[in-house]
């Protein structure tokens, strides 16, 4: 359940009510930042957060995201190498048969 989507906080709109403007792919919506406001609100501008039903629910940890992606890319590259090797062997086999 629970549709959530990454958005970037671009502007604090109401300091007292902890409201800010979030940008999702060029679409803007005012959201509550109550759940991620653990310091000065202005620090949130530029931060990415997971947006759900008008609330920024969790700050996205850029380092963790990068680490996950790196692991995934490493897998992808290994896969490419394996495929390249397989293709090379196939070509050699075909070459030998020819």
């Amino acid at each position: 359940m629970c549709l959530g989507i990454p958005g970037q906080i671009v502007e604090i709109t109401d300091e007292s009510r902890l409201m800010a403007m979030a940008d999702v792919s060029g679409v803007r919506r005012e959201v509550s930042v109550a759940c991620i406001a653990d310091g000065p609100l202005s620090d949130l501008v530029g931060a990415w957060a997971l947006i759900h039903v008008g609330f920024a629910m969790s700050r996205i940890d850029e380092d963790e995201a990068a680490a996950t992606l790196e692991a995934l890319h490493a897998l992808g590259e290994v896969q490419e190498e394996l495929e390249a090797m397989a293709a090379g062997q196939e070509a050699m086999k075909e070459g030998a048969e020819a």
Partner: peptide
């Protein structure tokens, strides 16, 4: 879309499927 599109990369998906 940041933090979304990167996690839809078909190349990495293929690798994951192989591992799986």
């Amino acid at each position: 879309m940041k933090y979304a599109d990167e996690f839809r990369d078909p190349k990495a998906a293929k690798a994951l499927l192989e591992r799986i």
